[in-house]
């Protein structure tokens, strides 16, 4: 053994002979299933997102339904313009806004866990050896940028408000207020996005987690106590919102391209 008294870190005793088999893992259960499912799920989502953002014709708007991938639409020739910030020569309106929700999900504590396990294999599963001999965690470039998660969360809040507005306008048809299958799909999309956004670990911290004395901040304590149970289901909300946003876009594409009608349920058309 050697005692390292110099260099960074804690001068603790390291080394020594370890017992047990010198194999990557002794687990005999199906530990590889979870990483495989995550790889398939996230890869499918990325492929779907790329298809949605790059497809021509885009078919992202079927009055009054706007695809969440294209919201807020900030290119001047959009079919449903929030603000003409980008001139009309920009061909891919979705690419102008997707960077914000993408950053939020990429730096999310749950997604970090899932892609570190499934793609990096650091580790692929508990008590299964890392794939790489070196490991520096999130201490260096580029992973040190995971610390911007709370800023991504600020933007995610804005997007949750915008998608809520889209859900409300999905009930406003040319001849008055009504309801279709598409309206309900967009409403569910907004609910799932809100659940995912407010169950975020950074949200929990900013709302009250950074306090040591709750008794002097009853409002923040109240918020923290409400967000904490949601935070326990952050993974569930992450997947629900991810799958639903892809489904919402696909449904609107089907309607906008004329493959299916948006079945009307109630009220004006």
């Amino acid at each position: 053994m050697s005692i390292l008294e110099r260099g960074p870190g804690t001068p603790v005793t390291i080394g020594g002979v370890r017992g047990g088999p010198q194999t990557p893992t002794s687990r005999r259960d199906l530990w590889w299933v979870q990483p495989v499912v995550v790889v398939l799920g996230l890869t499918a989502f990325v492929a779907d997102g790329l298809w949605a953002a790059l497809r021509q014709p885009a078919n992202y708007y079927a009055n009054p339904l706007l695809s969440p991938y294209y919201s807020p639409c900030i290119v001047s020739n959009c079919k449903y313009v929030y603000g003409p910030i980008i001139p009309s020569w920009w061909t891919y309106p979705a690419l102008a806004v997707l960077i914000f929700p993408l950053t939020f999900r990429l730096t999310c504590y749950y997604y970090r866990k899932s892609y570190y396990r499934a793609f990096w294999w650091a580790p692929p599963a508990c008590a299964v050896a890392d794939a790489r001999p070196k490991y520096t965690g999130e201490s260096r470039f580029p992973l040190i940028f995971q610390n911007i998660h709370r800023y991504a969360w600020y933007f995610a809040l804005i997007f949750a408000v915008i998608l809520s507005w889209d859900a409300i306008t999905a009930f406003r048809f040319p001849h008055g207020v009504g309801m279709s299958i598409g309206s309900l799909i967009l409403l569910a999309n907004a609910v799932f996005i809100w659940l995912y956004t407010i169950s975020c670990h950074s949200c929990r911290h900013l709302c009250g987690g950074n306090l040591n004395v709750f008794s002097k901040a009853p409002v923040r304590r109240w918020l923290w106590k409400r967000i904490s149970p949601l935070n326990e289901h952050h993974m569930l909300f992450a997947w629900m919102s991810l799958v639903w946003i892809a489904w919402t876009d696909f449904y609107i594409w089907l309607v906008a391209a004329g493959f299916i009608p948006d079945v009307h349920l109630l009220g004006a058309h």
């Binding site: 960074p8 870190g9 804690t10 504590y109 970090r112 866990k113 570190y116 396990r117 650091a122 580790p123 508990c126 008590a127 490991y135 520096t136 965690g137 999130e138 201490s139 992973l143 040190i144």
Partner: peptide, 14 residues
């Protein structure tokens, strides 16, 4: 952040 190295954790939850 420094000596105890919380930045080394990549929150894989094992």
């Amino acid at each position: 952040r420094g000596e105890f190295g919380v930045v080394m954790c990549n929150i894989t939850k094992c």
